[in-house]
């Protein structure tokens, strides 16, 4: 029982991490038809920003208490800024060439981790975790690390915030309408392009937040972390249905749980394989993903 509880919470924590990356990917793809290969790089930027601030280089930030909150906020802010720069400098000039947009993000996705490893080395750096979050707590006889809860809480907050933003605000309305039918929104006189930067900023913030607290989960940061997570985030996005937040949330929980349980009860690594096979099987049965959104 205690193993199952631990596996469920670890799976949910991993799923939360996937959701933080996939929510932005899904919105960006839904609105702009851009499969953002640089999203893992945004996550790495968030992770490195937090690590940089938390190791005492930013005044006021540190590995404990409020200092850590500040460090996470700093990492998220850097990631958001990077996402906005990416959209304005790389994606915007290529609006008329959709395939080139994807290719340009591939280039950025290659360059950024290389740059990170050029500056801070290719090896993993230990992530300074605050003492308050590095302990465990007892639940139904299992000792669960606290950072799983932090991840789950962050993902739930992001999900609710995004739902509120999309459902209750005017900008959210434009984004939702754009995901539904971009040509029609443009024809009705709303410039959807203004929402592009916004969606990129939101997606970048979520991914950078994922990177920032993903450091707690992994215990270290390395340049390739974001990129290796990106493939599973893609799997989540496609499974959930492109452009659907709820779908992405459901799929990330499913993927995280399947991965953890298969890795534990069979051999290590088979969980990753199971997820991939699951994706192929799902797409063949339902080519439009779980929620039936347009793929």
């Amino acid at each position: 029982m205690s193993t199952v509880v631990l596996l469920v919470l670890t799976g949910l924590g991993l799923g939360a991490l996937y959701f933080l990356v996939a929510s932005g990917l899904s919105l960006i793809f839904g609105l702009m038809d851009v499969l953002n290969f640089a999203h893992g790089a945004l996550m790495s930027i968030g992770a490195y920003g937090t690590w940089w601030a938390a190791s005492g280089r930013l005044p006021g930030a540190g590995p404990g208490g409020l200092g850590f909150v500040l460090a996470v906020a700093f990492g998220t802010a850097v990631g958001t800024a990077a996402a906005v720069v990416l959209e304005l400098a790389v994606i915007r000039p290529l609006y008329t060439r959709p395939r080139e947009q994807i290719l340009a993000t591939v280039g950025v996705g290659l360059a950024v981790p290389a740059l990170l490893s050029a500056i801070w080395g290719a090896d993993a750096r230990p992530f300074p975790a605050p003492d308050a979050l590095s302990g465990t707590f007892g639940l139904l006889g299992a000792q669960v690390p606290l950072n799983r809860l932090v991840l789950i809480a962050a993902a739930v907050i992001v999900l609710i915030a995004l739902k509120v933003f999309l459902g209750r605000t005017r900008h959210g309305l434009v984004v939702r309408a754009g995901v539904e039918d971009r040509a029609m929104v443009t024809a009705l006189g709303t410039d959807v392009r203004k929402a592009f930067t916004l969606v990129f900023a939101i997606g970048g913030a979520a991914a950078a937040l994922g990177g920032a607290i993903g450091g707690l989960y992994f215990g270290s940061v390395d340049p390739e972390q974001g990129t290796s997570l990106l493939i599973f985030a893609f799997v989540v996005v496609v499974m959930g249905g492109m452009g659907s937040l709820t779908g992405a949330a459901l799929a990330s929980v499913g993927v995280g749980l399947v991965q953890q349980f298969a890795n534990y009860y069979t051999t290590d690594g088979l969980g990753d394989l199971a997820v991939v096979v699951l994706l192929a099987a799902l797409l063949l049965v339902r080519p439009r993903g779980l929620t039936g959104r347009l793929a």
Partner: peptide
């Protein structure tokens, strides 16, 4: 890899 990535983006533009 950084140079190649940057070069690639430059070529696309």
């Amino acid at each position: 890899l950084f140079l190649l990535g940057a070069l690639f983006v430059a070529v696309i533009y």
